[in-house]
Structures are given as C-alpha cells and as structure tokens.
Computed example of a mutant assay.
Amino acid sequence: MVQQKQQTPGRPRSEASHQAILQATIDVLKQQGYRATTIEAIAAEAGVGKKTIYRWWSSKAEVALEALTTHSNTHVPFLDTGSLQSDLLSYFERSFESLRGESGMLLRGIVAEALLDPAFAATFQRVFIVPRRASLVELLQRAQARGELTAETNIEVLADMIFGAKWYRFLLYPAPLDTTFAQEIVALVSRHRA
C-alpha cells in the first residue's frame, strides 16, 4: 500500500470511500489515460470531495499507484503450482495479458511520472517494483529448494534477468509480450536446472 499522508484529527477514514476512490481511479485512468486524469475526475467518479482524496494521498501519482498496485495484486498473482516451468508460464501469461491491456497503459503513465519525479520514483520502487521482485525471487528459491535450479544459480541475478526482459519489451522494444516470448524465457531459465 502507498504510504499516505498523516491523517488529521476528525472523521476516521471510510473503507468504503477508500475502495470507491481506488476503483474510480482505475476507471478514470482507463477512460482518459494517465496524463489527462485529474483528482477532480477521480473525485467525481468516486462520489467524494477532492479534499477526501488529498487527505489520504498527496498527488495523482500516489493514488494511481495504490489503485494500480491493488489491481495488479488481484490480477497477476505469483502462484505456487509445484513446478518452476508452470509457475513462470502462469506468471508471464497473466502479466503479459495485463500489460497488453489497459493496465499496461496505466503502468506506462506511472513509470513516466517516476522518471520525472525522483521522490515518486522511490515510492514506486518501494511499493510496486520491490515487492514483485521479491515474489519472483521467492518463486525461484522454491524451485531451487525442489532441485529444479542448481545450487550455484544466482537467484538474484536470474530474477533481474527475467524482470529485465519483461520490462525492456514492455517499455522500450517493439516486440510482442506473448506466449512465445514467455516460453523462450522459461527455456533459458530451465538451462539452470539441476
């Protein structure tokens, strides 16, 4: 969850309003894109005042980040199927599908914001990137414990290579995020099998 501003004395935060704002943020971002989205539009969609949003988040970037993080946690989980190959293929299938759709458009806007704002970049890394990388490392460690990766495999570097390939294609290189690419990554990872 994004670190939010310290609440001032007064009414406690309503969980219903919180969820309405997160859903409204996703809806408005999908309709308008990140750049055109405003706090005013989010507030109108959620049926709350702008002050409510600013009481809990300091910027459009922070509310968008929490909304996207919550959405991604639900739609792109790291499953434990008991097999490295199945775990990775499942992850890539869900992740690539999400990135090819509206979530990818939203994430590009947030990444652009992070490139322009160093303070927000640190929040983005802490809230979005680091937990996902940690989940991938955990997935690889489980595979190593099952004997699916050699004991000598540097899990940290392997995680960076897997994420690097995904992020490179997502943000910079005009090649598809598809099943073929996922299978090629899994085949490369499988070369480290015990």
Rank of each mutant, 00 (worst) to 15 (best):
T81H: 11
A182V: 06
I129Y: 07
W56E: 14
E148P: 04
I185G: 06
L88R: 09
I42F: 00
S14R: 11
Y91H: 14
T52A: 06
E97R: 14
R108M: 10
A151T: 11
A182C: 06
L88H: 09
L89P: 07
T180Y: 07
V63Q: 03
M105V: 12
N154A: 13
H18V: 02
N73R: 12
A194G: 15
T25S: 13
M161H: 11
A36F: 05
P9G: 09
A46K: 00
P77F: 02
P176N: 08
G33M: 01
K166Q: 15
V127A: 03
A64E: 00
D160P: 00
Q183P: 03
E62Q: 11
P12N: 10
E138M: 11
Q85A: 06
P12F: 10
A159I: 01
Q141F: 01
G82N: 02
T153G: 04
A112V: 01
R100K: 15
G33L: 07
V189N: 05
F163Q: 15
P176V: 05
Q32F: 08
A114H: 01
A16L: 13
A43T: 01
A165L: 11
R146S: 08
N154R: 13
A145T: 13
P77I: 03
Q141D: 06
P77E: 03
S95D: 12
A46T: 02
M1A: 15
A114I: 01
D87R: 05
R100H: 14
D80V: 09
M161N: 10
L107T: 08
I185V: 15
E62R: 12
A36N: 15
V63G: 00
I155H: 12
L107K: 09
T8C: 08
G147D: 12
Q7H: 09
E184A: 12
L29R: 02
S103M: 14
Q31R: 15
H18K: 03
T69Y: 05
A44T: 14
S135P: 01
A41D: 02
S59F: 03
S86K: 13
A43H: 02
S190F: 02
Q141M: 13
G164Q: 08
A187M: 05
D160H: 01
W56Y: 14
L140Y: 06
E15A: 11
T69H: 07
E97W: 08
I155D: 07
F120E: 04
D117I: 05
L139C: 15
L158C: 08
A67E: 01
R146K: 07
Q144M: 02
V48Y: 01
T25D: 06
L84C: 05
W57I: 01
G101D: 04
Q3D: 12
Y168Q: 09
V137E: 14
D80A: 13
D80T: 13
L22E: 09
I185M: 13
K30I: 09
L65W: 03
V137A: 07
Q144H: 05
I39L: 15
K5V: 13
